[in-house]
Design a binder for these strands. Structure first.
Lengths: 159, 159
DNA sequence: CCATATTACTTGACTAATCATCTATTGTAA
DNA sequence: TTACAATAGATGATTAGTCAAGTAATATGG
């Protein structure tokens, strides 16, 4: 009780003096993204892969038949990771990914998604799509477009 | 060369069929937040703390003199973490945080930021503020407000 | 007032992420 | 053509994050 009143008073004290809209926006971005990622992680993890591993599989499905070099996968990842090799190790151990050294440039290792990997993604396509749509249902399509465009400009300014 | 052409073709092929604005918005949120967090992590890590540890210190500075129970810190964290105890262990080892078992409720452990912790935060206040402002300078104040309000609605819909 | 439940952490085992360093291969310039 | 540099990725060590189970203290219902 004393606990709860205290906490409330503090909340007021702390939420008032936001340093700036910029700081508040950064906080809002961080909190929202954290919630979203936990939501999606909960969906994919019962299928035996982490969210990062799931993203690798989606990249490989999108890339098609000719094989994708390891570091190109890293480039395309949503969250950049230097641990791409080990991520692929895990996926290969689960037979969701296949790798082969590239004959033309033997420094490269080409990666493909397997049939099992494609099945896993197919199983998750609808749940993930639905969950994402539901998560964003508070915003209209035009609001989403504004959001997307704004974030793109922010990222542009960070390069 | 062949590499580069291929990658471009794929980018076109992959970026066109976004499943929906909702999916695109989620992707944009994830990418933008990842970039922002890397940016801030680079600022705080030279001072010997991780971004999560820095956030703990900020919570404790905001909380004032009466001490904050461990799990209330966890509640207030931007990224929720079950590893709050160990985060505090590290901060205490660096003498940035002080802990004491609460006499009224001996289950609780109250936490305070130390003078050294306050100095560390003071050193980082301007760099962090400037970096945040710069990161968001692509958006006007009213655009930031729209962004903040939109994200708040999204989070509301996720509870 | 006593057994049970709940709260508030803590700990151990495990997994994942990060950094620096290393090897193999290819490109390049003297 | 032969050093030197750059690229692609692997590896080892360290650190951080996560999950499940455990402990101590307090609250609660009969």
């Amino acid at each position: 009780m004393a606990q709860k009143r205290l906490s409330l008073r503090e909340e007021i004290r702390q939420n008032k003096p936001f340093e700036s809209p910029a700081q508040e926006a950064i906080l809002a971005l961080s909190r929202t993204t954290d919630l979203l990622q936990r939501r999606f992680a909960q969906l994919v993890e019962p299928h035996g892969v982490s969210l990062q591993q799931y993203n690798v599989l989606r990249i490989l499905r999108g890339a098609g038949q000719q094989g994708t070099p390891t570091l190109e996968i890293a480039d395309r990842m949503i969250q950049k990771t230097p641990g791409i090799t080990r991520l692929l190790d895990k996926l290969e151990a689960k037979h969701l990914v296949r790798r082969k050294r590239c004959p033309e440039d033997r420094r490269q290792v080409l990666c493909w998604i397997t049939e099992a990997g494609l099945r896993l993604l197919a199983d998750l396509d609808k749940p993930m799509g639905d969950s994402g749509a539901q998560a964003m249902e508070s915003l209209t399509t035009s609001e989403l477009r504004v959001l997307i465009a704004g974030l793109e400009r922010v990222r542009g300014g960070l390069g």
